[in-house]
Amino acid sequence: MSRLHVVSGKGGTGKTTVAAALALALATEGRRTLLVEVEGRQGIAQLFETEALPYEERKIAVGPASEGASRSDSVRGGGGRRAGEVHALAIDAERALLDYLQMFYKLGSAGRALKKLGAIDFATTIAPGLRDVLLTGKACEAVRRKDKQGRFVYDAVVMDAPPTGRITRFLNVNDEVAGLAKIGPIHNQAQAVMRVLKSPETAVHLVTLLEEMPVQETADGVAELRAAGLPVGGIVINMTRPALLDNGDLDLLAARGARAGVAKALSQAGLGGARRGGLADRLIDPLLEQAREHAERVELERAEHGELTAIGLPTYELELLPEGVDLAGLYQLARDLRKQGPI
């Protein structure tokens, strides 16, 4: 099973929400999950309704209570009833570089001098490769970190990653950096990071909606990831909506007499007179128009669903939460994910 889950998706598909829900879903029965953010947007803090995250790992939630407690593979042993934990970290490339310099070169005040001169800014903006090595490097470090007993500190790490259009470049730091740093610690760091990212320990999940552009980007993204040798996990179809009416119903509505029948039914339900021009009758045209729009959308979604299935990856579906995602909604999404099997 993967331990590093990279969650990407087109802008607006809800990848931060899905990443958070996935982290919660993985944090069951005493499991510890680290949810990392790399784009400095503080989306995680907003979702979990906490203040802005600093550059340090802190616990932000407990996992949902396990349902049925049937899973016996709890890593932390114990009763299996213990709630898991979600820790969160907002990775900042500059701080990561300073840490890194401190760790390997004991820079101390020289590090501050470098920062003052703009060297750190320089180094982290000079090339996306370097910046990305620092960001992915920190996540990979968390994946590999062990405690004194030699157990992994985190059972899983979930990364709220850059959008689909940039994900392959972001993860494929080796290629990016290879052109620049052919030797030296950055080169070595990139190599080490790539080993984790290309191993079965990693899975890149793509979040999409049942709309044309996100689906197209998902298909393109999967192709790019595969071409780069990066392990693709699953496709999360977010914000699905139930089909309340379909084309069969529309055919019925088009039939002779249907209009009068529906008007009558509306009238019987207390919505006014069914006669021509009556209150119920006047509702019919707009309601039918809405039904046509709905049916068109359902058709379109069906087609997009087919495209996604054709990619040949496991898919997971999350229903649209009509009132938006609050903390309770997030737990609901986590439960829904868990019900659909391991991701």
Binding site: L252, G257, A258, A265, L266, L287
Partner: peptide, 14 residues
């Protein structure tokens, strides 16, 4: 054309 029952059902769906 739908029966009145299915008309009611259609109306409920709408």
């Amino acid at each position: 054309a739908p029966t009145s029952a299915s008309a009611a059902q259609l109306a409920a769906g709408l």
